[in-house]
Nucleic acid binder design. Structure first.
Lengths: 200, 200
DNA sequence: TATTAAATTGTCATATTTGACAATAAATCC
DNA sequence: GGATTTATTGTCAAATATGACAATTTAATA
């Protein structure tokens, strides 16, 4: 009995508000006051439902990494059996798929990870698995490529993609997306020429 | 007459302390208290010599960008007439030349630039001229390469370099430096094959 | 030594952020 | 309606960051 709990919905609202705040003000700039205002709730309620600042950020990291994994898994599932590499480029470098809020949140978390051991470990794992997945995709298209070249190109593609994120605060994304994509294609071509097989 | 002014030395000490604080705590985490503690001065003195927070950060940005420009200019001046591209790779991707503190400060400034119009403009100019300089170096070695390919490879090299910075908070630099350099070499090779002339 | 200009110290007021908790209101079940 | 559980509001205290300024000390010169 008793009054029905709104904990789940409220937690959802609060984390969404937190997410938006982090995208705009960074993690440190996202005070409980701001989160409360953004979610339309009183600060006391934010504390009541989610807890203190530490628990709040923990839940946000959970949420962001999980959503990122889900979207990435969905993307991977859509990859064609052959030629997934070029499909990957479309996913990483087309204007349409870019999400400025997500970009800024990830940037904020990476930045904050520098001063938070737990967060750093979790982001490391996240980044590592991302890199590995890309390597697997490449290896499938270029089975004859060496491990080193696959690793280099994987890291290269991810760098080109992430650098668009990193420089996002400077607002030069529009200007840099095309060269980023072209450079990514160059890297892929490197694997083609080295590989004997079925490179696209 | 009167007591001799220590403004210059003190300002120097304070900005150095500020620099170290930003590398460790980020810009927002570098409170006047911390800067004072780090410099061994009272907070009142920090205010006395440098001014309020806004002037302080303005001076720090001056300092960092100027030092960066100086070092970059010095590096450019050392470039050989031919084959500067490979010399560039050594400069960007060798362990020895990496400066973790500088990396973190630049990261902090780029990040903060997202919420500071003046800083953003200054960082844009800085980044732009960096990109241009790289393009000029490449064009000299690969005169037959198209403008697009030069732009793409320039951005690619810079991405590989900067991404090491961006991921620095995750502490994976050691792991990623080698693939970064290999990918950079791949990008250069692309220009070689496209160019008819004197590529190394 | 007296004067002067600057360094240095110390203090007060204010705003912000956060944590803790009491008090009230609302919804559900018996 | 009464009991119970939770949402919701409101308030107080502590910590921190900053700005402003008075008071004192120090080091030069005349």
């Amino acid at each position: 009995m008793g009054r029905p709990s709104k904990k789940e919905e409220r937690t959802e609202e609060i984390l969404n508000a937190f997410y938006r705040c982090v995208a705009r003000f960074g993690l440190e700039g996202s005070t409980l006051e701001r989160i409360a205002e953004e979610s339309g709730l009183k600060r006391s309620l934010v504390r009541h439902f989610v807890g203190n600042r530490e628990e709040l950020t923990g839940l946000l990291v959970d949420r962001v990494l999980q959503q990122s994994d889900e979207q990435w898994s969905a993307f991977m599932a859509m990859l064609p059996a052959q030629n997934g590499s070029h499909f990957l480029l479309d996913g990483l470098f087309s204007d349409q798929h870019s999400d400025p809020e997500f970009v800024m949140v990830i940037e904020s978390l990476i930045f904050a990870a520098g001063r938070d051991d737990d967060m750093r470990k979790r982001m490391q794992v996240w980044m590592q698995s991302f890199t590995n997945d890309v390597a697997v995709i490449l290896q499938k298209d270029y089975p004859d490529a060496t491990t080193e070249s696959i690793a280099a190109v994987s890291y290269g593609l991810i760098s080109l993609y992430f650098n668009l994120d990193s420089l996002a605060p400077l607002g030069m994304n529009q200007q840099y997306r095309q060269p980023a994509r072209t450079a990514a294609e160059y890297l892929l071509q490197t694997l083609e020429s080295a590989s004997s097989g079925k490179g696209a």
